[in-house]
Design a protein around this nucleic acid. Structure first.
Lengths: 237, 237
DNA sequence: AAGTGGTCTAGACCACTCA
DNA sequence: GAGTGGTCTAGACCACTTG
């Protein structure tokens, strides 16, 4: 590795290793070579390779355990799939979900989709409709939009598209941070009917964008949630 | 430093350095010795000292800049003081605040205070009342509770107690993470009057606990926010 | 006992800032 | 040019897991 480039070696290493996961060369759940072997393979010192692996662990791509080795994390594992879901029951428990997904449609991005997904006027999006049930009762309706460019052939997909985490896994997208805007809204006619509440009654409006590891927006999702017995849990550091 | 203790040296170093800030030996805004000198002072290798300083930077206690040196962060600086405030205007801008603080009272912790602040039945708390104004109009009322044990003599304090960040600074408390529970509530009579809205109209209810670096709860604050033209911005990683 | 990641050392040189 | 943090090396040994 060239040590006189502007970009530090450990960042180049990180990118090279991330690429191995993104391309499927390293699959979720499998072990990767030990640190010493990797360092030799790339021709760097163990400490430098270690720093790259530290970064990947911080990105939640790897799990290392002393004495055992290093495994590639499965993005659709319970822990990682739930990381963009901060909705809880009032007592703090996670909501035991059942998701009903509607058909996936495709069309030109509207104004809000262009803003949230950073698309140009002529770009197209896939749209998905979901209803989340708790104890056989709908408590939230969602409308999600995804750039077609990132999900080639999604419309023909047979799967019912459970959530962005699983979808991203299918299309080789690695997810990074997400931003969610929470506000109080009024139930529209559709939302009121779907949730079984009165028109214009207050709901939690959840406006979330999930970004890829490269920072590109991957999904924009609006959610309207029946607010009774539910809360949103945010953490700050 | 003893390298055969169960606790890694870099963690011991971090704690020792945090202590220097907590006790005021290193004051906010001042430079600390360079990494080499610190390593020599503690009898460790530079790399180990560096790792400890990395951790402190991640805790937002220090700012390091290549060529310049390392300074102790001021917790009441704009950047750090605003870190527990995720409320924004709908367009995303930060809300230009004016805070009106009421008198500080003292009394036995009630049931919810005991839970949120992890207190025993007989522990006592200070209570503060605040109203946040935007363009001379109240948009949020707050009720904060703090364990008396952490703020000795707070009731006699002449200051109008602006926020937890400044208060913590005065009493040598270093702040860590915070948790906030967001839900939709109905304006009580008091809240409705203070905010100039109708009784029982929907408000954002913000239930926040700020923890110290040691993990102990430092402040519990309930806030009721007029929801029009405002949103809560959460980030997930 | 062998293999893994975790800690630690004692340097070297680079990139940046400022007097 | 002196001083700082940032990067990188090439090892050593420790703690843990597994066969």
């Amino acid at each position: 590795m060239n040590r006189f480039l502007a970009r530090p070696i450990y960042l180049q290493l990180r990118d090279a290793l991330v690429e191995r996961i993104a391309t499927g060369q390293w699959k979720p759940g499998t072990m990767i070579p030990n640190e010493g072997d990797l360092a030799r393979e790339f021709g760097v010192s163990p400490g430098t390779m270690r720093k790259a692996l530290d970064l990947m662990e911080a990105m939640r791509l790897l799990t290392r355990r002393q004495g055992r080795g290093t495994v590639v994390n499965d993005p659709s594992s319970e822990e990682l799939a739930g990381r963009y879901t901060n909705l809880r029951r009032t007592d703090g428990r996670v909501i035991a979900d059942e998701v009903k997904s509607g058909e996936i449609t495709e069309g030109p991005a509207n104004e809000r989709e262009c803003i949230r997904l950073r698309l140009a006027k002529d770009d197209r999006v896939f749209r998905a409709h979901r209803r989340r049930l708790h104890e056989a009762r709908a408590y939230m309706v969602e409308e999600a939009s995804m750039p077609t460019a990132l999900f080639p052939g999604l419309a023909d997909d047979q799967n019912p598209s459970p959530g962005i985490t699983e979808l991203a896994g299918h299309y080789g997208l690695l997810l990074g941070k997400a931003e969610e805007r929470i506000s109080v809204g009024e139930a529209s006619l559709e939302v009121a009917e779907a949730l079984g509440i009165a028109f214009a009654s207050p709901v939690l409006a959840l406006d979330r964008v999930v970004y890829g590891l490269d920072g590109r927006p991957v999904e924009w999702r609006m959610g309207w949630c029946h607010s009774a017995d539910r809360m949103y849990l945010a953490e700050m550091r």
